[in-house]
């Protein structure tokens, strides 16, 4: 017999409900910050324009990290740009997600033996979705976005939480890659 009595939800439950509602909005309105350092960036224009029209998914480009929800790392990252990527990532408002493009972000790709390029992006910042390929074609990119939406729906896009929890680990990796001076301005070195 179902109880007709109103049972107040616990605070956690309320928060969870709100979070689910929030997730609905978030996955349907993913605003991207495109960190176009590598060649994979060339896949974004067809994805945005009339060929694939990512606006269907509610996605759109944004100008600054403050406004964006998802950071697109499109290809290889040199050490210099890594610093800036981390800075940019830390400026984004939570919840925030990262999509890594191409093999360069997964294992260094064709630059795997370069002294100036990092090989594995998710050692430094938490990547939620990788889009494999060198470079991935546009369908793959779109697929990656849909995957991200699914992850958000299933509450599995938790990279930003992971960054909080394992910050020491990330920090250690960042330091190892960048040297003791983690971030510094070339004007002031």
């Amino acid at each position: 017999m179902l109880s007709t009595k109103f049972s107040p939800m616990s605070k956690e439950e309320v928060d969870r409900k709100w979070w689910e509602i929030g997730d609905f909005f978030r996955r349907n309105s993913l605003w991207m910050l495109m960190y176009c350092t590598g060649c994979c960036a060339i896949e974004l224009p067809p994805a945005m324009t009339s060929a694939y029209d990512m606006e269907r998914l509610g996605m759109g480009p944004m100008a600054t990290p403050r406004q964006a929800d998802v950071l697109l790392v499109t290809g290889y990252l040199s050490l210099k740009t890594l610093r800036r990527l981390i800075y940019t990532y830390e400026q984004m408002s939570e919840p925030k997600y990262i999509v890594g493009f191409g093999s360069c972000t997964i294992n260094g790709g064709i630059y795997h033996d370069s002294h100036a390029v990092i090989n594995q992006l998710n050692k430094y910042i938490p990547v939620d979705v990788f889009v494999a390929g060198c470079m991935p074609n546009t369908e793959a990119v779109m697929n990656g976005f849909v995957d991200l939406m699914d992850l958000i729906k299933n509450k599995k896009a938790n990279g930003w939480k992971d960054y909080h929890e394992r910050y020491e680990w990330y920090l250690a990796n960042q330091k190892a890659a960048l040297g003791e001076v983690r971030v510094h301005d070339e004007f002031h070195e």
């Binding site: 610093r83 800036r84 800075y87 940019t88 002031h188």
Partner: peptide, 12 residues
């Protein structure tokens, strides 16, 4: 100072 600088580090 923690503002959007297109990734640049500026301390001045």
């Amino acid at each position: 100072m923690d503002t959007y600088t297109a990734g640049n580090f500026i301390y001045t």
